[in-house]
């Protein structure tokens, strides 16, 4: 991270869900205007991290600082104000099922701005054009394919021209074409709109191909970070297992258990 401003800082984050420790001591700095990817195995708390950046969850200890604001110190209305500068693409798309595609994209504009109907319409059509779905604006979310729903959700996430766009597993469950479209879109939008992108994913190849900065987390801490090349060169066993997908390694194939011979021999 050379001489770039950081827009999101996470310091010594701790979080527990029930008995399970999700974050032990997370430290991440996300540079402004770049695409940052946070990689980690399933269940490592990646989505939880995004929710903390969005202020939907509060950490037990540590700080989350977004655009210089410590989220823990903000009032409810200040937090809502700050969220207007963040867009989030949810894993499931999270389109409002009772509104059409057009209304979905128009929704953040209607509730957060005082723009006139005509202006809102133009903005919505432009955003839909950017994701290639202007023709689908009258459809309902139930009529869209998974990939299309995600693109509409992306159009909605960027409707307010946010400074930070967060992607929660944007590639999960997509066919190769859909994946290619999304990779292109994320890259293109980041370039043209100049916002900061944060991608949470476990699709290594796609993510490595577009991210400027990569953090790999495991067991509640960041184990490696750097550019795509630096990560590929990493000698850490953990990182190698994760990016190459070895079935056994530091993350064991077997769920912790007693020795199999012993269990088979014991009478119960």
């Amino acid at each position: 991270m050379l001489n770039t401003e950081t827009i999101i800082q996470i310091h010594h984050l701790k979080f527990k869900r029930g008995q399970r420790e999700i974050f032990r001591d997370m430290n991440i700095e996300i540079p402004k205007g770049k695409i940052t990817a946070i990689l980690g195995p399933s269940g490592s708390g990646k989505t939880t991290l995004l929710k903390m950046i969005g202020g939907q969850l509060s950490p037990e200890a540590g700080k989350v600082v977004v655009k210089g604001n410590d989220l823990a110190l903000l009032t409810r209305s200040e937090l809502f104000e700050l969220r207007k500068k963040m867009g989030m693409l949810f894993q499931s798309g999270a389109l409002f099922s009772d509104m059409s595609v057009f209304e979905n994209v128009a929704f953040p504009l209607k509730v957060n701005t005082n723009l006139g109907e005509g202006l809102i319409r133009d903005i919505v059509l432009m955003k839909l054009q950017a994701v290639g779905l202007r023709g689908a604006c009258e459809l309902m979310p139930s009529e869209l394919s998974g990939g299309m729903a995600r693109r509409v959700a992306l159009a909605r996430a960027i409707a307010l021209d946010p400074e930070i766009v967060m992607y929660d597993e944007p590639f999960a469950g997509q066919d190769p074409i859909g994946m290619g479209v999304l990779v292109e879109l994320i890259k293109k939008l980041n370039k043209s709109l100049g916002h900061t992108s944060v991608i949470i994913s476990h699709d290594i190849q796609e993510t490595l191909s577009i991210a400027d900065h990569i953090c790999i987390m495991s067991e509640g801490v960041v184990i490696a970070q750097g550019s795509a090349d630096e990560i590929k060169e990493s000698t850490l066993e953990n990182v190698q297992q994760f990016i190459n997908g070895y079935p056994d390694g530091p993350v064991p194939f077997h769920y912790p258990s007693e020795d199999i011979m012993q269990q088979l021999m014991t009478e119960n």
Partner: peptide, 18 residues
Amino acid sequence: GLMKATEQLASLEMIGVD
């Protein structure tokens, strides 16, 4: 419940709507 499961509630929150 469905709105919660499909993250529509979280999405509303992120858009800045309670």
